[in-house]
């Protein structure tokens, strides 16, 4: 296994608050790394730094031998980092298909003037894109809702659509921020099998933030635990579960999610 993302000493401050301190990790190709921790621990902030939305106060994010820090979010995406959001951020007034097509912008070779004239080749490209999107939707069982406006989807499918949209970027690493937050048991199972499918079919490397321990434990290869911005533990699920610091952090934070 090779390292495809190397994060060193990421630190970010908001005014006086150190939201994340010295976060480091080498992500291995094909692994599923989980980041857990109580509310406000800094998990989402790590994602925001890994996707260029926040600029870290210090530290580096290396991919393909390049430090991405300071680049704009779309450049992070172009380097293969695709994410979902804890608070759903779909393109609400666009249809399900269009939401996914929008994530293809980067790869599209449509040119402005041909698009203006809608030449034969543009029509052809649009057709191929549509077919590809429909194939993807079919895999994830969203094809029946293809032409619905995304804001009219129920909550569960909206979360799922965000994952499919990120997949359309053809990323090297998929970052999922609490993909099963607010879902019922059946929906959680569906997302679990969807993640399994993504790993199997696309050999995707995944970083995942989640509160639900019973969701994380069976699927994670490795877990990092954050508390007050600091990494307090790291290791395989079995070790993490027994780690007294982790239990303390969770119980201290009023958590009862440990299975």
């Amino acid at each position: 296994m090779a390292t495809i993302l190397s994060v060193k000493n990421l630190t970010i401050k908001f005014g006086g608050l150190v939201a994340v301190e010295d976060f480091s990790v080498d992500v291995q190709e094909g692994e599923l790394l989980a980041i857990i921790g109580p509310n406000g621990a800094g998990k989402t902030t790590v994602f925001n730094m890994l996707t260029g939305i926040y600029k870290p106060t210090s530290g580096s994010i290396e991919m393909d031998g390049k430090n991405l820090v300071g680049m704009r979010p779309h450049q992070f995406a172009a380097h293969g980092l695709a994410r979902t959001f804890q608070n759903i951020r779909l393109f609400h007034n666009a249809s399900v298909v269009d939401n996914i097509k929008m994530a293809y912008t980067l790869h599209s070779s449509e040119k402005f003037f041909p698009a203006l004239m809608r030449t034969e080749s543009v029509v052809e490209q649009e057709w191929e894109l549509d077919m590809e999107v429909m194939r993807l939707l079919k895999i994830f069982n969203l094809d029946q809702q293809a032409d619905l406006l995304s804001k009219n989807l129920p909550y569960g499918p909206q979360r799922k659509l965000e994952i499919v949209r990120a997949m359309m970027l053809k990323p090297k690493i998929l970052l999922l921020d609490e993909p099963v937050a607010g879902m019922n048991v059946a929906e959680i199972d569906e997302i679990a099998s969807l993640i399994a499918q993504i790993r199997e079919k696309f050999k995707m490397t995944i970083i995942l933030i989640e509160h639900h321990m019973n969701f994380v434990m069976p699927i994670a290869d490795r877990i990092k635990v954050l508390d007050f911005g600091k990494t307090i533990a790291e290791g395989n699920p079995g070790d993490i579960q027994k780690n007294p610091k982790v239990i303390e952090a969770y119980l201290g934070g009023g958590y009862h999610a440990i299975a």
């Binding site: 779309h74 695709a82 004239m117």
Partner: peptide
């Protein structure tokens, strides 16, 4: 024509959610 192409879709994505649009490579 332009609205129903890559360009129009990118515009609408920016309109609907600029942060997500950027994160999706736009």
């Amino acid at each position: 024509n332009i609205i129903y192409s890559r360009f129009g879709r990118a515009w609408i994505a920016i309109r609907d959610n600029e942060i997500a649009a950027e994160a999706m490579g736009i």
